[in-house]
Each structure stands twice: as C-alpha cells, then as structure tokens.
Simulated assay, not measured.
Amino acid sequence: MSTGASRNRSMAGLVWGGKGIVQEEGGVFVLYLSVFFLLLAFFILLTSLSTFENRKFDAVLQGVQDAFGVTLTEGPATQAALARADERLGAVGRRLVAVMPDAVIDKGGKGGTLAVTMPVASLFAVATADGGGTVVTVLPGREGVWHQMADAVRPDEELGLEIELEFLVGDGGNPGASLPVFEAGAMARTLAAAGVVPRAMTVGVEKGTADTARFLFRARLPHPAPLAPRGEEPPRR
C-alpha cells in the first residue's frame, strides 16, 4: 500500500464550494475545545460582572418553594427568622426534657423544626366518671411548659415568622379507639387556656404506637416583600 493512499484514508474529507478540503483527524476535536473554552470564559466574565438584588432573589426563591414544596438556600430575612425559630424551639425542647425526662427530642437535622415524642402517661391522667364514662385530664404542674409553647408559636411580626404546633396521639393500630381522641381534646383545651392561638395549633390522632404522643413544631418562613415599581420604596412591614 502506498504512503499517499494511506495518508488519504487517515484524513477526513470535507467539501465546501465544490472543492475538496482535507482536514487531518483531530482537527474537529481541537476546534470543539477552542469553542468550549471561549464559551467558558464568556460565562465566567458574565458571572463576575453580575450582582444580586436581595429582594428579587428572595421573591424568586419563595416562588420556587411555594410551587414545589422545597427549601432552597435562604436569603438574609429567612436566615434571621430561622435563627429566631431555633432559639424559641430550643428553649421549648429543654423545658420539656427538664419536666419530662422520658421525652425524646428530634430536630430532624433541619432548622425551624422540633419533634418531641413521649409516653401519654407523662401527660395525662385517666379516670372513670361516676356514670361510667372515661375522664381524661392533663397532669398538673406543667403549666410553665404550656405557656412557653404559647410564647414560642406567637407570631413575630418584625421578622414575619410564624410557628405551627401540632399534637398527635398514636391510635395503637385501632382507628376506632376513643381514648386517644379524649387525650387529644384534653391537650387542645390545655394549650388554648395557656394562650396558644387556635390558628397556630392542630391536634389529632395518628396511626402509630399506642400510648405515645408527639409535639411537632414547624416554622413558616416569611414571604419576601413584594417588589416595588421602579423609583418607589418597597412597603414596610
């Protein structure tokens, strides 16, 4: 085989304007890399020249979170609200453990949340009424805990922070059991008497282990302030 024929087979032939243009193998790859690095340099330049506007960033962030139910990187306002929520919920958790040593705290690795699980025997006293019915009352001596929960879920208008409180009693695999319903009702009355606002509180019965109750706290992060038209100041809280 001649050297010329071998060289022709090792070259890629391109046609332009009716003329044959011969390009050696590897030339296309070099061209691709050149374009890639030019584009990379262009985007690096754009990034270095760009600036973030916190209000617009927070507005887009909140829109994504509302649409998809996910939490992304927080802006300054959200970080401040989370810090306040963690401060409040940390105090509640420490108070609960001090009063009820058998309570188990779980923050779930996420800011602005708190879960506390405990036996219902640490919360309620069950007695039989004269007429044969069941009477459930919350154990005395815990008033300080309930008042601290009320303080924790009180809205913070300055930061736009709200914390939701949920109390759930396990049904032990028996959805028709009446005792968990009585216990949930007794806790609802106790929390309301301590000052927990109704819109911040939910009580109920869940499918789960019998004789077990849970307090769940979740922070609702503030929505960013609406964007003001150009030349106008954004509305103040």
Rank of each mutant, 00 (worst) to 15 (best):
G109L: 02
G93Q: 07
G109A: 06
V64K: 09
Q79P: 04
T137M: 01
G108I: 05
Q65M: 07
E87C: 03
F42M: 14
D130Y: 09
A81H: 03
L123Q: 01
A121I: 03
K56R: 13
V136K: 00
R55H: 09
A81C: 08
G112T: 04
L139K: 12
L49P: 02
L45H: 02
T113V: 12
D66K: 14
L49G: 09
F57I: 14
A115F: 15
L49W: 07
V135S: 09
A81K: 08
A81E: 00
F43Q: 15
T73D: 13
A103I: 09
E87A: 02
G132V: 09
A91S: 13
R95M: 14
F57G: 12
E74G: 15
A85F: 01
P101L: 11
P140E: 06
A59P: 01
R88D: 01
T78M: 08
R84W: 12
F57M: 12
M100D: 05
G132D: 11
V136G: 09
L123V: 08
V120W: 00
L96I: 15
V60G: 05
Q79L: 10
L49F: 01
V135G: 13
V136T: 12
Q62C: 10
D86K: 10
D86E: 01
K107W: 14
A127G: 05
V135R: 01
G69S: 12
F52W: 14
A121P: 08
F68T: 15
T117A: 12
D106K: 04
A77W: 02
Q79A: 15
G131F: 00
G63C: 08
A81I: 08
P119I: 04
V138E: 01
R84A: 04
L46P: 08
M118G: 08
R95D: 02
